[in-house]
Amino acid sequence: MHNFSSTRIDRRFKDLAVEGRAALVAFVMAGDPDLATSLDILKALPKAGADVIEVGMPFTDPMADGPAIQAAGLRALAAGATLAKTLKLVADFRGEDQTTPIVLMGYYNPIYVYGVDAFLEAAKESGVDGLIVVDLPPEEDSELCLPALAAGLNFIRLATPTTDDARLPAVLANTSGFVYYVSITGTTGAATPNFSATASAVARIKRHTGLPVAVGFGVKTAADAAAIAAHADGVVVGSAIVDALRGSLDAEGRATPGTVPAVAKLVEDLAGGVRTAARAPA
């Protein structure tokens, strides 16, 4: 097993377990709607109550993403986002925040094109803590997962309602940081999860691992966040945040003075929901 006692992700989940509450994991797309606004949004997230930030790596063919996140990626690409600029965004964020964990989420193709070793070195240098690469199954661990672990980055795996007990050990074998449980079958933002089914799924995953389990897909409101936070170690919100951003843009899809506040306000509401679902401290 790899020892990750020193990553920001591990420390954050450990601290929150002591506090007796779940983490709010907020997803935003790098470079949406432009790089400068994207940096301002990143800086606003911890102050609004995000405990962990997932930063999407824009990609032209995001097959696991629903319409909201696909559109965010296309806006970012149209504004000139690249993987190199995404890494610089994280480095710029780290200029004033050394504690909030950052997870890059996306697809393998841009990393492969960048070069795995060069990417891992640049990611580590930029202040990235972990990776979620949705199209690399455990059978491909030698491609990126094992090199990432060797570089000291958490490699976070997704489990879904269709991941059965026979499959779970393979999914969890080289996972670190946390397990991301996708609470509904389908693309992101598609439907509202069944909260009681989610609770039993989290319990099932925890029988196989000591890692924190964060739940995402379909969380839209503070009430949703509270319902999941009562049972999970983290609540992941993506599409709702991206929708709040999109709703603040002008007719040409450009940022307005209301863009950063719109995102911050929703994250504050969600953080409030997560914090109402207090649990016994670890």
Rank of each mutant, 00 (worst) to 15 (best):
G56F: 08
L83R: 05
P193N: 12
G218K: 07
T188M: 05
T60F: 06
R279M: 08
Y180L: 14
A226N: 00
V236H: 02
E252V: 02
L245S: 01
L153S: 10
R11F: 03
F27G: 00
V260L: 11
T60E: 01
L89K: 07
V52S: 07
D117I: 12
R12I: 03
A170K: 14
I241T: 02
A197E: 14
I41V: 15
R21S: 03
A244T: 01
L74K: 14
L35R: 13
G234C: 03
A227I: 01
D34E: 15
V215L: 11
D129I: 11
D141W: 06
K265D: 08
G127H: 12
F13C: 02
D10M: 07
A255H: 02
F119G: 07
R167P: 11
G130A: 12
L42V: 04
G177H: 09
A244I: 02
T209Y: 07
T160E: 04
R75E: 12
V215Y: 10
A123V: 06
P281Q: 14
I53N: 00
A264E: 00
V182Q: 09
G216P: 08
E139F: 05
R94N: 08
L136K: 13
K47I: 02
E140P: 04
A17Y: 05
K220R: 15
T259S: 06
K14N: 12
L249M: 12
K206T: 07
T187A: 09
D117Y: 04
A48T: 01
R94P: 03
D224G: 02
I102Y: 03
F178E: 10
F155S: 04
A251N: 10
D165M: 11
A271M: 01
V260F: 08
A214E: 05
A26L: 02
H2G: 08
T209E: 12
G273D: 01
A203W: 03
V171W: 13
I184N: 04
A150D: 15
K206A: 12
A50L: 03
G66S: 11
G247D: 15
F59L: 09
P67G: 11
L35F: 13
L144K: 05
F93Q: 12
P101D: 07
V215T: 12
I9M: 09
G80H: 07
A84M: 07
F27E: 00
F13D: 00
G247Q: 13
T86E: 14
R8L: 14
G49Y: 00
I156S: 10
P101H: 07
S200T: 15
K206L: 10
I228D: 01
T198F: 03
V116F: 05
T276I: 05
D34A: 13
V202P: 11
G186S: 13
T256N: 08
L131H: 03
N174Y: 14
G272D: 00
A232N: 00
V202Y: 03
A173E: 15
D32P: 14
P147K: 10
R21T: 02
A166F: 06
P33T: 12
N154E: 15
L74N: 06
L87I: 11
N194M: 06
I205M: 11
